[in-house]
Simulated assay, not measured.
Amino acid sequence: MIHIGLTGWGDHPDVYHPSSSAKEKLQDYSAHFPIVELDASFYAIQPERNIRKWIAETPETFQFVVKAYQGMTGHQRGELPYETPEEMFVQFKRSIEPLREAAKLAMILVQFPPWFDCKRENVEQLRFIRHQLEGYDVAIEFRHQSWYTEAMREKTLTFLREHHFIHSVCDEPQDGEGSVPLVAVSTRKDKVLLRIHGRNVNGWRNRTGNNEAWREVRYLYDYSHTELMEIEQAIRQLGNETEHVYVIFNNNSGGHAAENAKRLQKMMGIDFQALAPKQLDIFEEE
């Protein structure tokens, strides 16, 4: 089964009803897509009240791909606001437990930064994370090319299989060691994740030092029909290996994610069921 969604629900104007308030964005979003990547959890471990609110606002079968807190992946600058790493993981698990109880937790996405390269100490960090998140479905996403060199690719995939990690497959700009190739391989029989970041090579790296400007252009990309056909081929290949393929469009700097996701859905002849009642389908042809 193929599940298609977007990163976050707060920045996709194409899916909102004109009369909806900001508080209704998730409800509007869930009328179009059956999954979403929860990225607020990357910036701060979310209060349980937020999680329960989002559960209540979405259909029974709706699912969340929860992005791991930045302190868990090495993105955090400065000291962690927790006494120990173990306490941080405990608080994170406590935060998302309502999602698991409601059967709305698709997986935890652990996305590492570009400087997390393939070396022994980082492999040990992966083992530590697996231990801390024992019993959870955890997707691992690398951003350093060293994990996928000719010498290391099969070792990387074997390690993910042995530790029951979900492979996060990426479509992203190819710009040196700070990016990874699209390796359409699933390491589990039940779930795989495909994250689609766009192919804006010029915007991928922060060459200006201006973080705000960089965030505006990094994921600025509109996939062509031919490129979406390449994505479709990867999805079908993954579908031959695993039961559930989760596809997340993250190319939203210019608002292209929703349109690209809808176009791919139409190309593949997918009709999602059990969505929230649609107030307005802006993608229907007149």
Rank of each mutant, 00 (worst) to 15 (best):
K23I: 01
A40E: 08
T156V: 00
A261I: 05
P113H: 14
H12K: 03
F272D: 08
V15I: 07
E227P: 02
E97L: 14
A184S: 07
F116H: 06
F64L: 02
T58Y: 08
W204Q: 00
Q279S: 10
N50D: 12
V65M: 09
L228D: 01
Y69I: 01
Y148N: 10
N50E: 11
P81S: 10
H144Q: 07
R77F: 12
V36E: 01
E83H: 09
S19Y: 12
V138A: 09
P59F: 06
M107C: 04
R143N: 04
I196H: 04
D271F: 12
H17T: 05
L133S: 07
E154P: 04
R127F: 14
I55T: 05
L6C: 00
G255V: 08
A213K: 13
I55D: 10
E284M: 12
P59T: 08
A257C: 01
K67M: 07
L6G: 06
E134Q: 12
V245A: 06
E230H: 02
A31S: 13
L26H: 03
H256L: 00
H3Y: 14
T61F: 08
F249P: 06
Q76A: 14
V15A: 00
H225C: 07
K23Q: 04
G5F: 10
N250M: 00
P13E: 03
R207K: 12
L238P: 05
F249S: 09
M72N: 09
Y246T: 13
Y136D: 05
P98T: 12
S179T: 11
E97K: 15
L38S: 00
W9V: 07
L80K: 10
F62C: 01
R127N: 13
V245F: 03
A31K: 06
V217M: 11
Q132L: 11
F89W: 14
Y148P: 10
Y43K: 07
I140A: 05
E37H: 03
I282R: 14
Q279F: 05
I166T: 06
K25M: 07
G135S: 09
A139C: 05
N202G: 03
I45W: 03
V217Y: 02
D117K: 15
E285M: 13
E48R: 14
F42R: 06
D271N: 13
L126F: 10
M88G: 00
E101S: 12
L6W: 10
G135N: 12
S41E: 03
V247P: 06
